[in-house]
């Protein structure tokens, strides 16, 4: 695969060059930690970070978006965004999550035009993890701190330089386009990358997902769900911070004289998620709602898409206000 080395001192020039044709998002120190933010050539990117608070799904499935405006002739659809974007510094777990989201939004029957257009216009440059966080478990769910699934270009941080390796055609073209700023990686650099990748993988404790779909299926009516979910406060942190949670709702809103249809992410932890107009609600207990989320990821997704919809990013663990830990939840599912 094509490889290139980009010296960090040239990163600003790189941002400037890329910005001529695309919006460049990269890691930036913000008031709430390092976030994936729009970079200008003058910005100093933050190369040391665990992962961003919010997963990159917001670039493809925003928290909310106006999809149409109602008019006398019917609905006028919002045209899907054609904006060309580069996301630099996406962690490999998050890049892999997009390959799962693709299965939902770009299936054989119905294609979500908003999602697809953003995917097609976004180039993803991952940055391999050197120091997985205590909440990370990507290696247990098909990932790896230097994984390349979902990446157009996979980057490794080698201190004074970045090693870039293109994975997809779009990635090859991108590297070729910006070859002027880059050099050929040295043997020492390639070696450094290999040992870095090998080290990072050893730093995570494993999570047993073996036979999980079958175990979950058998435990559907287990009392365990009510026990575990006692602590659940019923907020949407795990859902909104999850890179694969994609449930949404379509709502009409009136803003001044304009009536519009909005698509907004929703969370299965909320009682309103399944509340029907009649007042009937098939999931009245928090235990049933929590079970739905866990089963959706670790059982139903396996049945429908052949994958567990979890990439081990650990956001739900890190940010749960009640310290519900999905690793423990899965371990507590009865055998």
């Amino acid at each position: 695969m094509p490889q290139a080395s980009l010296r960090k001192e040239h990163f600003g020039k790189f941002v400037a060059a890329v910005s001529k044709g695309r919006k460049f998002f990269g890691p930036l120190e913000c008031s709430d930690g390092v976030q994936l933010a729009e970079l200008s050539p003058q910005d100093v990117p933050a190369f040391e970070y665990g992962n961003f608070t919010l997963p990159p799904k917001r670039f493809f499935l925003p928290r909310s978006e106006v999809i149409a405006v109602h008019g006398p002739g019917g609905m006028a659809a919002t045209p899907p965004s054609q904006e060309r974007v580069v996301l630099f510094g996406v962690r490999p777990c998050d890049a892999m999550s997009l390959t799962y989201m693709d299965k939902v939004f770009i299936d054989e029957t119905y294609v979500d035009p908003y999602y697809r257009s953003r995917r097609e216009n976004t180039l993803i440059i991952t940055l391999a993890c050197r120091q997985p966080a205590v909440t990370c478990f990507c290696a247990s769910v098909k990932g790896c701190p230097a994984g390349t699934a979902g990446a157009d270009i996979a980057a490794s941080d080698l201190g004074d330089a970045l090693l870039l390796e293109s994975i997809t055609d779009a990635g090859h073209a991108f590297l070729a386009e910006h070859a002027g700023l880059m050099g050929k990686p040295s043997t020492a650099q390639l070696k450094a990358r290999d040992s870095q990748h090998a080290d990072a993988g050893k730093k995570m404790s494993p999570v047993d997902v073996e036979k999980l779909p079958a175990r979950l299926q058998a435990a559907f009516e287990s009392k365990t769900w009510d026990d575990i979910s006692q602590r659940c406060l019923g907020c949407g942190v795990c859902t909104f911070l999850c890179p694969t949670c994609h449930c949404f709702g379509l709502h009409d809103e009136q803003v001044g004289p304009v009536q519009r249809r909005v698509r907004a992410q929703d969370a299965c932890a909320f009682p309103t998620f399944t509340l029907e107009a009649s007042g009937h609600n098939p999931r009245t207990r928090q235990g049933a709602r929590m079970r739905q989320r866990v089963m959706h990821k670790f059982c139903y997704a396996a049945e429908n898409f052949g994958e567990l919809f979890c990439v081990g990013c650990g956001r739900c663990i890190r940010s749960c206000p009640a310290n519900l830990d999905i690793r423990q939840t899965l371990a507590e599912v009865p055998e």
């Binding site: 299936d107 949404f248 379509l250 929703d266 299965c268 509340l275 029907e276 107009a277």
Partner: peptide, 12 residues
């Protein structure tokens, strides 16, 4: 069931 998209995407 409560539905939103009708086409198997919204997960509801």
């Amino acid at each position: 069931r409560r539905m939103s998209c009708g086409i198997g995407k919204c997960g509801r």
